[in-house]
Design a protein around this nucleic acid. Structure first.
Length: 425
RNA sequence: GGAGAGAUGGCCGAGUGGUCGAAGGCGCACGCCUGGAAAGCGUGUACCCUGCGUGAAGCGGGGUCGAGGGUUCGAAUCCCUCUUUCUCCGCCA
């Protein structure tokens, strides 16, 4: 959510900037400005009435004290009319405020000036590549064929127990999952992230705080009876730790990470390209989050990109880092880098991480603020997050790139975690 | 799940209908004191909306004492609902 003040004062700037996201804000902004005008006018009237009522109440108390019952009664009668008028205005005010809020949340975040103009993924900007893409080999298989019949990752069994998109990992595959989680957390710890185990179900306020509600309701699994949602990412509970908080500048930057399972309904997003591990309803992920001073949030973003890169390098995976163009960026992001890993069996790049700076967009919604030392005023903090990393596609990459005959080699860095150096099929 | 007791500012803690945004203490900030520090003394110390003023300082109005509703001229204080914490009982990993 963009701050109202910014919309009031920099409307044209916003309109210009949002063109990068192919978003025409002209209409919305003019509606916001006129609605806000009405809202303030109304509030002024309401406040005057309330001030009158407060004065009368004080007078009445005084009159009673002085035993002037008659006059007190007269003053009381005055209040009734004002109160009635006030009730009407308040209703009007509530309606307008609701409308204003609905308008404001329709504006996406402003892209950073380095964000390339563009409409689709084709316009994204390649930042750099790394690792070695394996030589083409006709015997190389996509992971679902490679593992077929092994039971290591059993999609059919998952269907029996739960449904499509809920695979069962067994034996070495299960241990590989656990190894990766521990590896990621250990690395994160070294990089200065504080480990957190948050709830994996959240209430409506939290879902609203990070923007899952109201738009992306269909993406989440919901426990109807309790009004709770299964998290689609640890970003939700992790970021909501800071909802309604005011930090002091010396607490910044905050660096948190959490491993959680993630649940996504992925309604209507299935197709032939999302076989196997490529897209799941439940998957594991380690998420990193930062709360930063606005002055250095992009330093934080670079840090996180470098950190995620270090992970894929240690895993010896071929990767590329992409800066998303305006059209491909999320609603809430000011700048996003995607990490893709090449899965040689499928011959395609798979997104394994998305690292974003939301600047104050999310913080505004969350009411996450901080105060500079010696400053009376609070300001919105900047929030950032990224995956570090999401497991399934990393596993897909490892399986597909490291297959050799009937064996799949495990990168050396993981050996202490897995306890084996290869998987035999 | 049953019974009872709570929920007040960064923290502790007063406050049962009328200048209460809220005593007191702690903490914190600044100043005095000191060679420096501690102690001591003094001052200040919530957030949001809004009006004048440059979004400064400052001044004014409104709202907020878990949340929402109600009673009343007037509510932190009374009533209702919800949330939540603690204690006891039950159940349980």
């Amino acid at each position: 959510m963009l701050p109202l003040k910014l919309i009031q004062e920099q409307g044209n700037f916003i309109i210009e900037r949002l063109k990068i996201k192919n978003f025409d804000a002209t209409q919305i902004i003019s509606s916001i400005l006129s609605t806000d005008e009405k809202r303030r006018a109304l509030q002024t009237r309401i406040d005057i009435q309330l001030a009158d009522l407060n004065n009368l109440a004080r007078q009445i108390g005084q009159l009673y004290k002085e035993g002037k019952r008659q006059e007190a009664e007269a003053a009381k009668n005055q209040t009734f009319e004002i109160k009635e008028q006030n009730r009407v205005l308040k209703e009007e005010h509530a309606t307008i405020e609701q409308l204003l809020k609905e308008l404001v949340v329709q504006l996406p975040n402003l892209p950073h000036e380095l964000v390339p103009v563009g409409k689709t993924a084709d316009d994204n900007q390649l930042i750099r590549t790394g690792g070695i893409i394996p030589e083409p080999d006709i015997n190389r298989k996509p992971h679902w064929d490679l593992l077929a019949g092994s039971g290591l990752i059993d999609f059919e069994l998952g269907v029996k127990i739960t449904g499509a998109g809920f695979p069962v990992y067994q034996r070495e595959a299960a241990r590989l999952q656990r190894a990766l989680i521990n590896f990621f957390l250990d690395q994160g710890l070294k990089a200065g992230f504080t480990e957190v185990q948050p709830p994996i179900m959240v209430n409506e306020d939290s879902a609203y705080g990070t923007g899952q509600l109201p738009d992306k309701e269909a993406q989440m699994y919901r426990s109807e009876a309790d009004g709770l949602y299964l998290i689609p990412t640890a970003e939700v509970p992790l970021t909501n730790i800071f909802r309604d908080e005011i930090l002091s500048a010396d607490q910044l930057p905050v660096k948190y990470m959490a491993y959680t399972p993630c649940f996504r309904r992925e309604a209507g997003s299935w197709g032939s390209h999302v076989r196997g591990l490529n897209r799941l309803h439940q998957f594991d992920k380690v998420e990193i989050v930062q709360v930063r001073h606005p002055d250095n949030s992009y330093i934080g973003l670079d840090e996180m990109v470098a950190y995620v890169e270090s992970l894929v390098i240690l895993l010896e995976l071929p990767y590329r880092i992409i800066r998303l163009c305006g059209g491909d960026m999320s609603f809430t992001s000011a700048m996003t880098y995607d990490f893709e890993v090449f899965a040689a069996g499928q011959g395609r790049w798979l997104e394994v991480s998305s690292v974003s700076n939301f600047e104050s967009f999310q913080a505004n919604r969350l009411k996450l603020r901080f105060r500079d030392k010696g400053d009376k005023r609070t300001q919105l903090a900047h929030t950032l997050n990224g995956s570090a990393l999401a497991l399934p596609r990393i596993v897909a990459g490892l399986l597909e790139n490291n297959q050799q005959g009937n064996e799949i080699f495990i990168p050396e860095i993981l050996h202490p975690y897995t306890g084996f150096d290869r998987i035999r099929l």
